[in-house]
Design a protein around this nucleic acid. Structure first.
Ligand SMILES: [Zn+2]
Ligand SMILES: [Zn+2]
Ligand SMILES: [Zn+2]
Ligand SMILES: [Zn+2]
Lengths: 130, 130
DNA sequence: TTACATAATGTTATATTATAACAATTCAAA
DNA sequence: TTTGAATTGTTATAATATAACATTATGTAA
């Protein structure tokens, strides 16, 4: 087993920013926020984001091209993700439901195909917007 | 009840193209293909795509920024979609499983929130690539 | 029919998201 | 301590998507 790698400088800066954000952050908004810390180019941001996604510290909300920190201790790597998204205020919450994740992890389609990874996005109205 | 609206010219051209394609199509590849038919600008493509998604004739594969025709007679409107995506050859198939759709349509998170819409993308290896 | 509203179209420009290509540096393992 | 992998820095460019505004078609109701 590998020891968990510590984050590099750029990765840490960008993770901290996303982790503190109450809402998903987009790449260029991240870029803008970290320019004072010396990260000047899109690629520096995208490379850090790629790595953070790969190791499961953040997730990408595909329908929004935005990133949020993972607060679900059980997902070490981004292979099983589920989110709820408010269609009014765009609030995003990671869903951690044992039932749901078990159901999806064991789902087989009619060809008997099992999947190694999934991403689920639910849309609706959050408490505040209902 | 409304009669089902016929497609407009641009919508029909673009739907036909996607419908015939064996794989998901990206907006600018659609644009390139329909230029001989007089559709010259990205917006003309995106407007048709938006409408086709809205009425459920096509679906957007969010993780790929690509569009496929719906072949699932039971989904009239894009509110409950599930796909399998091969990570090698990028083959995409729409999953139509009554069990899955029932499970997800009735899923409530721990706040009791019910959702009006979802999109699920499974990743794995297709038959050919296994 | 005529008039009005609505939806669709055409067009130019621009915004947003993401990657290519290559050089330099850091860092850990042999 | 060298060597290979990962990370970083940098410039340029590709790919995806929308803003703004003018025009044309289409449906509906007086
Ligand atoms: Zn997570
Ligand atoms: Zn809300
Ligand atoms: Zn469908
Ligand atoms: Zn395949």
């Amino acid at each position: 087993m590998h020891k968990e790698h510590p984050l590099t400088k750029n990765q840490q800066i960008i993770f901290d920013l996303i982790d503190k954000s109450p809402e998903p952050m987009k790449a260029y908004s991240i870029l803008f926020s970290v320019q004072k810390k010396g990260i000047k180019a899109p690629l520096q941001v995208y490379r850090a984001l790629d790595k953070l996604v790969e190791i499961g510290k953040i997730h990408k909300i595909e329908s929004r091209n935005a990133f949020i920190a993972c607060h679900n201790s059980s997902c070490q790597v981004s292979k099983a993700t589920a989110f709820s998204i408010c269609e009014i205020c765009e609030k995003v919450t990671e869903i951690s439901s044992t039932g749901l994740s078990k159901y999806l992890a064991n789902f087989k389609d009619k060809d008997g195909m099992k999947y190694s990874k999934y991403n689920l996005e639910f849309f609706g109205l959050c408490k505040k917007c209902r």
